[in-house]
């Protein structure tokens, strides 16, 4: 565990989380959330939890993003807040 890398990734994660809930377009929010999941996966690999990092990279950044995009295309992209 390298604390400089840890702090850098944590700050990026917080920026991505704030961007996810402030962006008005739902598709961009989903893509930023995918970047958030990938940064989270890097953080876990850096902490030594490689199995959790694998699962997050496939399931969190992959499958759940596809779920969100499919649901947004079937409903609406517009968001008021």
């Amino acid at each position: 565990m390298i604390w400089q890398l840890d702090l850098f990734l944590l700050i990026l994660v917080v920026i991505c989380a704030v961007a996810t809930i402030t962006v008005k377009d739902l598709l961009s929010a989903t893509i930023i959330f995918s970047a958030y999941s990938f940064l989270m996966c890097l953080l876990w690999a850096e902490m030594g939890a490689v199995d959790v990092a694998f699962t997050e990279a496939t399931v969190g950044a992959g499958v759940s993003t596809i779920f969100f995009i499919a649901a947004i295309f079937r409903t609406t992209r517009r968001s008021k807040d």
């Binding site: 989380a17 809930i21 989903t30 959330f33 958030y36 989270m40 649901a71 968001s79 807040d81």
Partner: peptide
């Protein structure tokens, strides 16, 4: 947030922070 997708994204963020 009032949008339901935004609420779900918030729930996912909450969950990943606890896992972290």
């Amino acid at each position: 947030k009032r949008n339901l997708v935004k609420k779900l994204l918030g729930m996912n963020i909450f969950q990943t922070s606890i896992i972290l």
